[in-house]
Amino acid sequence: MPAVTTSADIALRHDVFHAIADPTRRRILELLKESEMSVTAIVSRFSVTQPAISQHLKVLRDAGLVAMRKVSRQRLYSLHAEPLADVDDWIGYFEDYWTEKMGELGRYLDANPD
């Protein structure tokens, strides 16, 4: 976890959260966990159109969760899972939550000792 979180980091990490919040995109990530796939191969596994899948892939690419390489005329997509770990480190919300709440409990007790 970096010592300084810039707003660009926040935006990027939000993109990661947004990306995994959608069930179709989670399924795409699951598929890519198995192997690198072309758009056509990915589309064949869903009942939605290619433009919709391409849009999902764009969101995943923007979040840094999938990589794309061109082989002749094919675009091959693969999973790039590192940002997920990054988000997990960064979003220790409950750690912050309980730390904050224990602070509040301490202040409450100090103000109401009996």
Binding site: F17, I91, Y93, D96
Partner: peptide
């Protein structure tokens, strides 16, 4: 689980 942590508080 990640989403919950993010959405909380």
């Amino acid at each position: 689980g990640w989403m919950m942590r993010r959405a909380m508080n």
